[in-house]
Simulated assay, not measured.
Amino acid sequence: MKLQQVLNNLLSNAVKFTENGAVTLFATTEKREEELYLVCTVTDTGIGIGADKLDSVFESFVQAGSDMVRRYGGTGLGLSITKRLIELQGGKITVSSTYGEGTSFYFELPLTLSEMVTNEPQVPQLEQAQLSASLLAGKKILLIEDNIVNQKVTYLMLHKAGMEVHIANHGKEAVAFLEKETYDLIITDLQMPEMDGFQTAAYIRKKMQINIPIIAMTASALRNEKDRCMELGMNEYLTKPFAPATLFFHLKRFLLKEESSTSPVAETEESKTSGLYNLSFLEEMDDAEYASEVLDLFLTLTPTALNEVKDLTFREEWKEVFRKAHSLKSGLGILQMQPMLETITQIEANAKAQENTDAIESLLQQAFQQYELVKPMLEAELESSRKKVVL
């Protein structure tokens, strides 16, 4: 739940528009029948909002007036984003105000069972997971991946557990590594230039006669792809995005010979959300610096990638549109940006089949809009993560 961002937006707005007086936050819980609600009110003694503006205050790019923009700045997106975040959690927000006297925002959110219970029962499980991860320290991993976001995410995940990680950008580089070094396990993407994951696995097994475990990871999840991986001698197949716990589950299987009756894969599928984004995969690492690096990479690279897809679409280079759209899916999956991920997946499918390509332009416009909606939220998450690193 993005309660922190909701409160940050409301409180920063209240402070910005209050030159004298006070800003007050009141929070409580209310039980209604069998449900528990979090109820919050943010009240200020600031400039207030005119009655003619109250009905539109939650609309995108709307502020109290052009003179307010000149005096106080801002884009007019904060309250629109706040309302959307609250509604995505099943809550509601209202506003009351008297011009010249102040404003009060009231919102309520239903609390789920997982938010009401304490974390104490989970401590032994967490300690056991950390102990198992520590046993992986010193293991040598070859990561074959051409996407820089995936490289960063997977490298940091493994490096934090004490593993030594070498990165190859494609299969040919991987073969060069394997000719000089010995590894405990290989993690490979499937869609890569020069030499893809399928060709690489076949070469490693048949030509090089190397039998260390190979874990395939892909954003495609195409039909029969897993069977093809197994036929080529790979040992496991993961669909991106996957939670860190899922990867470590399989690392422990192959490197520590641990067997467990409970795989985290099913839990990962259930955790996916239909919301704008979800940082649970990053939060699972409990590392603010790691989260900051991933968010910064995503915010830096995504606009460029979208513009590249736009240019390629204009030139009708569908093979390259497919490749670039496919590369975008990884970052979107890690941040669980389901609406935008679905749009990019459709672009990828149309470009690969070279069918219904006329629809790609409008799909791409939709993807740009989806990114612009989420961008300020992720920027706020990035700022929050950076502050935690400093602390």
Results as ranks from 00 to 15, higher is better:
Q5Y: 12
V6K: 01
K16N: 00
R32F: 10
R32A: 14
E33C: 10
L36W: 00
L38V: 02
L38W: 01
G46N: 01
G50N: 12
K53I: 00
V57W: 12
V62Q: 02
K83A: 14
E87I: 03
Q89V: 01
G91N: 00
I93W: 09
I93Y: 09
S97I: 08
T98R: 09
S104Y: 10
Y106D: 15
Y106E: 15
L109D: 01
L111T: 04
L111K: 01
S114F: 15
M116C: 07
M116N: 05
V123H: 13
L135W: 07
I141P: 07
L143G: 01
I167W: 14
F177P: 13
L178V: 08
E179W: 07
L185S: 03
I187S: 07
I187D: 07
D189P: 09
G197I: 13
R205P: 10
K206L: 08
Q209E: 04
I215F: 08
T218A: 06
T218C: 06
N224W: 04
N224H: 09
E231G: 08
A245K: 10
F249V: 02
H250I: 10
P264Q: 03
A266I: 15
A266E: 15
L282R: 04
Y290G: 04
Y290D: 07
D296H: 05
L306F: 10
K310A: 05
K319Y: 01
F322H: 14
S330L: 08
L341Q: 02
A351F: 03
K352G: 11
A353Y: 01
T357W: 00
L363F: 06
L364G: 04
Q366S: 15
M377N: 06
R386M: 14
L391W: 10
